[in-house]
Every structure is written in structure tokens, then in C-alpha cells.
Nucleic acid binder design. Structure first.
Length: 221
DNA sequence: ACCCAGGGTCATA
DNA sequence: TATGACCATGGG
């Protein structure tokens, strides 16, 4: 059983960091904004999420009490630019009522990470990636966030684990790297930033900071 | 015009 | 367990 090597992962990390620099994630003014953004960015471009967050702020609605107290159509209207607005209005309401019922950020912050994670995951509309975004970037817990970019990166680097179920892959990465909040924070951000890059060189990418392998989503047309 | 984005749920086999 | 449909806007 080879497994993931800490040395290779750290090499990868340094390579990405050298190419893109520190990302200083998550872009938000408060932990609650991180949580809201995590829900809104599900399968959605961040630029669209920014518009929705702007709408919420303009209406003093970036607040769990205001959100739970808003009419569905009103909330959906604010969320409209982020796509799936009806679905996300329901999910955000479900999350906010849970958040209030749990006693807010201070009370939640006292829970240990496994307990907090399982409670977040129990909220309807919050899956593993969204939950881990919240744990890492809103609650500062050393949780490695897995996304489609992470899987593609492992796959194209010929590293094992890209096809594992979410939880197994997360455990494998955390085991290889050891608990490290700052590393997990920057690593995920860099993976996403790099994943968004588009290869414009053909027939093979030479501009990619990761060896000679093209990690871009698709070869140019 | 086409592709895809910082996913998750639900129905079906 | 594993696919497929569905949700929807906006930028490249």
C-alpha cells in the first residue's frame, strides 16, 4: 500500500506557492460571511457569489436572524446572481436556523472538531466539501478540503487516491500531512486557483508550474 | 454557441 | 455503490 507521500505533497505545495503566491483565503469580513459564501459557491463561480453577497450586505441581510426571517422569494431575489437561487435560499435558511439553534459561533466554537463536523454535516444542503470549507476557513480547524480540482490534481500527477470516496481521501491527505491549519488553508486555496487556470499552449502545456504535466481542465481548441 | 463554475440531493438500478 | 437528472446565473 503506497499511499500518499508527505514529501511529494509538500513539494507540490511549494511549487504552487512559488507560482501563485499566498492566497490569503477565505475572502470575507467575518466567519459568518465565510459560511454563507461556502453555501453560495456550491458548483458556482465565485464572481457570481460576490454579487449575491453584495446584495445581502446592501440589505443588511448578511445575518442569520435576518435570513431566517426573510420571505423565501425575497431571499431568493438577493441570491439570484449566484445561481440555483431557490435551492440556495432553502439551504441558507436551513443553515441559519441550525446556527441560531446551536447558539451561534461562540457555542459552536467550543465543540471539538469531529463533533462540530458531524453537526454541520447534518444540516440539509451542507455536504462534505461545504462543511469542510466552513470548518477550515470559518472555525480554523485543521481539515483538508477536497474538491474536484484536488482529485484532478492527484490524478494528473499520477498520485494515488483521486478516485477514493470523499472521507477516505480526506483522511489519507490528513494522515500524510499531519494536522496543520496554515498548510491546509493555503493548499486548498492554491489548488483552486491553479485549477481555474486555462492552458493556452498546444499540444501540451509548458506553462504549468507542476512539472511538465498539463493540469488544466481541457486542452485548447 | 458551447462550456463550466470554489456541490448536494433525490430517484432509480 | 453508482450513475443520472436537477437546480440556474454569468463569464470565457
Amino acid at each position: 500500500m503506497p499511499g500518499l507521500s508527505r514529501a511529494v505533497l509538500l513539494w507540490l505545495f511549494e511549487r504552487l506557492l512559488a507560482a501563485y503566491g499566498p492566497q490569503e483565503w477565505w475572502p470575507a469580513d467575518s466567519p459568518f460571511e465565510v459560511m454563507t459564501g461556502a453555501v453560495l459557491t456550491q458548483n458556482t463561480a465565485w464572481t457570481n457569489v460576490e454579487k449575491a453577497l453584495k446584495n445581502l450586505k446592501a440589505n443588511q441581510a448578511l445575518d442569520p436572524l435576518v435570513i431566517t426571517g426573510s420571505a423565501d422569494e425575497t431571499l431568493a431575489g438577493w441570491l439570484r446572481p449566484s445561481g440555483y437561487f431557490n435551492v440556495k435560499a432553502r439551504r441558507l435558511k436551513a443553515f441559519c436556523s441550525w446556527y441560531l439553534q446551536e447558539g451561534g459561533e461562540e457555542a459552536l466554537g467550543r465543540l471539538d472538531t469531529p463533533e462540530l463536523r458531524s453537526r454541520i454535516l447534518a444540516v440539509h444542503g451542507i455536504g462534505p466539501e461545504t462543511a469542510d470549507d466552513i470548518l477550515l476557513y470559518a472555525f480554523d480547524r485543521p481539515v483538508f478540503v477536497i474538491d474536484a480540482y484536488t482529485r484532478r490534481l492527484l490524478d494528473r500527477m499520477a498520485l494515488p487516491g483521486g478516485d477514493l470516496p470523499y472521507e477516505q481521501l480526506r483522511i489519507a491527505l490528513e494522515k500524510a500531512l499531519g494536522p496543520d491549519l496554515a498548510l491546509y488553508n493555503e493548499f486548498h486555496a492554491l489548488i483552486v486557483i491553479h485549477g481555474k487556470e486555462r492552458c493556452r499552449v498546444k499540444p501540451r502545456c509548458h506553462g504549468c508550474p507542476l512539472i511538465n504535466r498539463c493540469l488544466m481542465p481541457k486542452m485548447p481548441r
